[in-house]
Write a protein that binds this DNA or RNA. Structure first.
Lengths: 133, 133
DNA sequence: CTGGGTGCAAAGTATTTGCATGAAC
DNA sequence: GTTCATGCAAATACTTTGCACCCAG
């Protein structure tokens, strides 16, 4: 099942074909940058404009339907909002994969030290994947 | 003491007045984005060009004299390369501060799960600082 | 000296905006 | 029908490049 019509509406986004396609692509790819997303979208919508991509991505981020992932030395990626997770970057092949690590102790220790009320963590672990080692 | 002549040279960077000023500013401010850095530099070098800022920042990053810090929903900051540390972002006032947390358990757990050889972590903790709570 | 740095202007990329038309609800 | 999205073109923002001149080593 792969129907994002309601998910979009729950985020106050009209369910247009272009947006449904973006949701599908993010679902399939996990995360993707603007230009590659545009390339894929062109296959389905031969006259889609980059402006439409930007407008939708910005609105989807603003409405928390998707999230931006900032990667060291690379363009930002975008992914569907889901449970908290971190990202692994292979410094050689550039692949980015999701990983879930327990960060509770980090949060509590950082809260204590800083007296911040911490709401979220953005963590990217960089190194060499199994293949590239 | 605040002499970055040798530090620059050790990173294969000629010690020009402009570069020394950048080093001093980063030392003083901790981290700064391109535009604010340009504004501060203009006070010392009234005819400095943004191109010079970019060229120097890029070269300094390439030579590991400084590092880029990517912050959610904000422009990148630059800071002198120093011991590993994480960053705290206040989502209200936008202040970014350094924090050191023990991430060894995160690294070992992530290494096991992923079979990556992990080299570094980029962590930004977002929340509300003491004043903004 | 000599190689590399600086500042300027121009070029290149990336991203946003305004507007007329068209689609979602 | 009304509101909002789309696609196009233009504008803006951001970053890099080429070149003549100058300074650090």
């Amino acid at each position: 099942m792969n129907n994002y019509i309601n998910a979009l509406r729950e985020h106050n986004l009209k369910a247009t074909p272009q947006r449904l396609a973006i949701a599908d692509i993010l679902h399939t790819k996990g995360h993707i940058a603007i230009e590659p997303l545009y390339e894929v979208m062109l296959k389905k919508f031969s006259s889609i404009s980059l402006a439409t991509i930007y407008k939708n991505i910005n609105l989807m981020v603003a409405n928390s339907f998707i999230q931006e992932v900032k990667i060291p030395h690379a363009k930002s990626l975008y992914e569907l909002t889901k449970d908290a997770h971190s990202h692994l970057l292979c410094q050689k092949c550039g692949e980015v994969t999701d990983i879930t690590v327990d960060l509770n102790s980090v949060i509590s220790s950082a809260s204590q030290k800083s007296q911040f009320k911490i709401e979220k963590l953005d963590l990217v672990l960089s190194g060499l994947c199994k293949n590239c080692q």
